[in-house]
Design a protein around this nucleic acid. Structure first.
Lengths: 216, 216
DNA sequence: TGGCGTATGTAAGTGGCGCAAACATATGTA
DNA sequence: TACATATGTTTGCGCCACTTACATACGCCA
């Protein structure tokens, strides 16, 4: 448990012999620690103090790199969003542009992120400290949703600015987002529902995209 | 601010002259206080101590009625779920059984709950302390989702046990649930999307329910 | 009516956390 | 080499979750 954190952590500075006072990379190491804690204990149960302990520094050290707790979490959210958009781009790349397979691949990818990192998913989409008007978050956010819009627009052969493309993309996003939540909350299983995900996504695509009589 | 809490709270015991020591209804009053705090500050930012202050008792008093913080929140979740299912039943009642209007009414109702009580919605569906195998939560939960299944099954004229009815109901639930989350997170607005909700629900029903060639 | 057990409240204490100083040490640059 | 700055530590404050010991009211039975 505690060793898992250390295997990759202490290599950079302490082992290198630079003495630990300035180990040069605390910000990144703290983010790793926070990420690990959020994944295991949830965003509302992690403490900066514990993250500092994991990183091997005093409990006040984090405040040299982050203003306060929300700012740490925001940094982690940005990191996750960047990963999500990168992964989404990579999983859809094998499929031909404009194909329905690309849309399905996006859906699977999104859901898998939630299933594989429920703690992070909850953080990214569930925390109320929304930093409401934050520009960075908005930007990274559109990099995720933007992919969906692009892909849907490609399918219909229209510009991503087309309102109908946005609307259809938003419907898709809603289903996939909702399903992700229900999965990690265990609500589906609680109701005795076992969802065949491939079928689910296929039916969604069929009902919300393919049956639409051409846009514009 | 602080007076708002008192207008409705002190009436039961203190004003009645019974002295405050046993005011007879602390559990309910605490739940009210917690509800108010969760609605305004979010479930991860409320403190038992503050709820006790609002209710006008010492900070240890709540522990006579609730084991710990998660248990308080669980009680509130149960309360919310009961309200949701009651409201859902009442809003669909005016429409004829088996009609698509009933399905739409359910959707609106669900989304409205999220919009009107984002803090509570986050609590009910977003907190990781899922009390995972909790029987009470499962029961109350099925009373919510059960309504959706029933209504969809009615539309198709099959039994609520029919797997296809469950599957279609689950798809609907996912969209509505996802949209609710995106709305209260402001994600839609952040992406410059203004969703016409009536149209949204109508398109969903059209794509996921009405176009389905009869079940079984 | 009176006494007793129990339910329900309070006060005080423990340990942890978020965060702010004030202080210490390393690093880069003149 | 000296100084400004970045980055770490120690200490301290206030708040919180939760516990334990104590106090008070209420219900019930003789």
């Amino acid at each position: 448990m505690s060793t898992a954190a250390q295997t990759g952590e202490n290599t950079s500075a302490e082992v290198a012999g630079k003495a630990a006072y300035h180990h040069g990379d605390l910000r990144a190491q703290l983010l790793n620690a926070v990420r690990q804690l959020v994944e295991t204990k949830g965003a509302e149960n992690f403490s900066i103090a514990e993250a500092a302990r994991v990183a091997g520094v005093s409990s006040a050290a984090p405040y040299r790199h982050f203003k306060d707790k929300p700012e740490i979490l925001k940094a982690l959210v940005l990191q996750c969003m960047a990963e999500m958009s990168a992964t989404m781009r990579s999983v859809m790349e094998p499929y031909p542009a404009g194909s329905i397979d690309r849309i399905n691949a996006l859906g699977h990818c999104y859901i898998n992120f939630a299933r594989d990192h429920p703690g992070l998913f909850r953080l990214v989409f569930g925390i109320s400290e929304s930093h409401d008007g934050d520009a960075e978050l908005a930007t990274k956010g559109s990099q995720v949703f933007g992919i969906v819009i692009e892909t849907v627009a490609d399918y219909f052969g229209v510009s991503p600015d087309h309102p109908q493309a946005k609307f259809r993309a938003y419907m898709l996003w809603s289903v996939v987002h909702g399903h992700s939540w229900l999965i990690i909350d265990g609500k589906a299983k609680m109701q005795g529902i076992e969802v065949d995900e491939a079928q689910f996504l296929q039916q969604i695509a069929a009902g919300l995209i393919e049956t639409v009589d051409g846009i514009e």
